[in-house]
Amino acid sequence: MKVFLTSSIGGSYKENGKRIPCALDDSNNFLELLKKYWPKNPKCLILSSDPENQEVNDSFKFIFDEAFKISNLPLSKIDICDSRNENKLADTIYDYNLIFLAGGHVPTQNEFFNRIHLKELLKSYDGIVIGISAGTMNCADMVYAQPELDGEAIDPNYKRYLNGLDLTTISVFPHFQDAKDLTVDGLRVVEDISLEDSKIRPFYALVDGSYIFVDDNKSTLYGEAYYFNNGAFTKVCDKDKSIQL
């Protein structure tokens, strides 16, 4: 299995409130590496982050079908797995050689993945997995589900650590370029939430365009990223550079 853990891979932009397909982000030679492992006439399955939101799921499917074509990564088939067909996943997942884990709300997606027994199904999967944002976060053995919605940061029952898909031991905090200016429930996302949580378990913060490639238990980080551990963070890689983790 080849696993791409990304913060964002581009593929669309907004114009007059409408999302328009475009080429994938090729920062840090992402497309070059992806094309190296791209199957012939791949069949792609998108795993939703919100199985009940069929309108958004269908839009996501359309956007990325077009984005892959624009990026010269054609697909022979693209489907989405959500509440409409989740009961068929165990019988169909191995028909696909490319699995796409969508972005969204981490706990919602995590609950869906548990419901469809995705962790167990992926143990016998031998294709490419691409995670985006929440999809990347849920790939870890132990997921850092950072609070992002109003009420989550101050809710004593909100679980910040969840069992994930166990495709990597690396926990990821995406969209770091935006998080530095965000607050949740009056708390600063980086200073008051992330740094405190890193005292419990370390994680890597990725800016959009950076990614981690996992192949045969070897993990390589590409692009700008930061390591959070024990209440502090340090820059560990720059754009257009790479390091072994």
Rank of each mutant, 00 (worst) to 15 (best):
residue 160 R to D: 02
residue 198 S to L: 03
residue 185 D to V: 10
residue 164 G to M: 03
residue 119 K to E: 03
residue 160 R to H: 09
residue 186 G to P: 00
residue 108 T to E: 13
residue 97 N to Q: 15
residue 142 M to E: 11
residue 113 F to S: 09
residue 202 P to A: 05
residue 192 D to P: 03
residue 163 N to I: 10
residue 128 I to M: 09
residue 140 A to M: 10
residue 98 L to A: 09
residue 142 M to W: 05
residue 197 D to F: 11
residue 144 Y to W: 09
residue 129 V to R: 06
residue 103 G to Y: 00
residue 159 K to I: 12
residue 78 I to P: 00
residue 110 N to H: 13
residue 77 K to M: 03
residue 116 I to G: 12
residue 150 D to S: 12
residue 179 A to R: 15
residue 123 K to S: 12
residue 118 L to G: 10
residue 138 N to Q: 10
residue 70 I to C: 01
residue 120 E to K: 15
residue 100 F to T: 11
residue 203 F to E: 06
residue 108 T to W: 06
residue 118 L to S: 12
residue 108 T to G: 09
residue 143 V to M: 09
residue 142 M to D: 04
residue 102 A to R: 04
residue 84 R to W: 02
residue 84 R to L: 11
residue 199 K to Q: 07
residue 80 I to L: 05
residue 178 D to V: 02
residue 192 D to I: 05
residue 120 E to S: 11
residue 101 L to D: 02
residue 159 K to L: 06
residue 175 H to Q: 04
residue 154 I to L: 03
residue 80 I to E: 07
residue 157 N to C: 08
residue 134 A to N: 11
residue 117 H to R: 14
residue 84 R to P: 01
residue 80 I to K: 07
residue 189 V to Q: 05
residue 204 Y to F: 12
residue 135 G to W: 00
residue 141 D to M: 01
residue 127 G to W: 07
residue 205 A to V: 15
residue 205 A to Q: 12
residue 170 I to D: 04
residue 106 V to T: 15
residue 208 D to H: 08
residue 85 N to K: 11
residue 117 H to G: 00
residue 115 R to Q: 14
residue 171 S to G: 12
residue 168 T to Q: 07
residue 112 F to I: 12
residue 128 I to W: 03
residue 74 P to M: 13
residue 160 R to F: 02
residue 144 Y to C: 07
residue 206 L to V: 13
residue 105 H to A: 08
residue 180 K to F: 00
residue 178 D to G: 09
residue 116 I to V: 15
residue 134 A to W: 02
residue 88 K to Q: 12
residue 153 A to R: 13
residue 201 R to I: 11
residue 89 L to A: 09
residue 161 Y to E: 02
residue 135 G to K: 05
residue 151 G to K: 14
residue 166 D to H: 13
residue 198 S to K: 06
residue 117 H to M: 05
residue 189 V to L: 04
residue 171 S to I: 03
residue 193 I to N: 06
residue 161 Y to G: 01
residue 198 S to P: 05
residue 175 H to R: 07
residue 160 R to E: 07
residue 195 L to C: 08
residue 135 G to I: 00
residue 92 T to A: 03
residue 94 Y to C: 02
residue 199 K to R: 08
residue 183 T to W: 00
residue 98 L to G: 11
residue 80 I to N: 06
residue 109 Q to I: 03
residue 183 T to S: 00
residue 112 F to A: 10
residue 175 H to T: 08
residue 207 V to I: 14
residue 86 E to F: 06
residue 83 S to F: 04
residue 70 I to H: 06
residue 72 N to L: 01
residue 99 I to L: 14
residue 178 D to R: 15
residue 130 I to R: 14
residue 195 L to V: 08
residue 195 L to S: 10
residue 105 H to F: 05
